[in-house]
Amino acid sequence: MRASAELFRRNGYTGTGLKQIVAEAQAPFGSLYHFFPGGKEQLGDEVIRESGLLYGQLFDIFIAPAPDPVSGVEAAFAAAAETLVETGYADACPIATVALEVASTNETLRKATADVFTAWIDKGTETFERFGLSTEDARRLTIAAVTSLEGAFVLSRALRDTEPLRVAGTTVATLARELQPS
Rank of each mutant, 00 (worst) to 15 (best):
G12R: 08
E107Q: 11
A3Y: 10
T135F: 03
F29T: 09
V154H: 07
C93G: 06
A76E: 07
D68Y: 07
M1D: 10
L54R: 13
L7P: 15
R139E: 10
G169Q: 08
T108G: 04
T174C: 00
T171H: 11
C93H: 05
A144S: 12
L43T: 03
T83D: 02
R49Y: 02
L133F: 04
R110A: 13
R130M: 13
A92F: 15
L7T: 14
P28I: 00
E24Y: 01
Y55T: 09
V22W: 14
A168I: 06
T125I: 08
A90E: 14
L53S: 05
L149S: 00
T135H: 13
E24S: 06
R110K: 13
E129L: 02
A176E: 09
L58Q: 09
E24G: 00
A64N: 07
D91G: 01
V172L: 03
R177P: 00
D137G: 02
T147Y: 07
G12K: 06
P94Y: 05
A168F: 10
V85H: 03
A23M: 12
G12C: 01
P164I: 00
A78H: 07
H34C: 00
K123M: 01
L58G: 04
K40L: 05
F36E: 08
S182E: 04
A3L: 05
E50W: 04
T170R: 13
A119W: 05
F77K: 07
P164Q: 09
A75D: 11
H34F: 10
T108Q: 14
L175N: 09
G17N: 02
G169R: 05
A90P: 00
A79T: 09
F153D: 02
R49Q: 12
I143Y: 04
S104T: 09
A96V: 07
F35W: 13
R177K: 14
V73F: 07
D137F: 04
A138P: 14
R2D: 13
N106R: 09
L165C: 04
A173S: 15
I63V: 15
F153Q: 10
L18H: 01
G44Q: 03
L165W: 10
P67H: 04
D91V: 14
G44S: 03
F117Y: 11
F8G: 05
T118R: 14
D137P: 08
S51I: 03
L159V: 10
G17V: 10
L54Q: 14
T87K: 07
A75W: 02
R10D: 14
I95K: 00
V73Y: 08
G52W: 06
L155G: 04
E82A: 13
G38A: 05
Q42L: 08
Q180F: 09
R110S: 12
A168L: 08
I61S: 02
E107N: 03
A173Y: 12
E86F: 01
L84P: 09
S51H: 02
Y13N: 01
P65L: 04
E50A: 13
D115C: 02
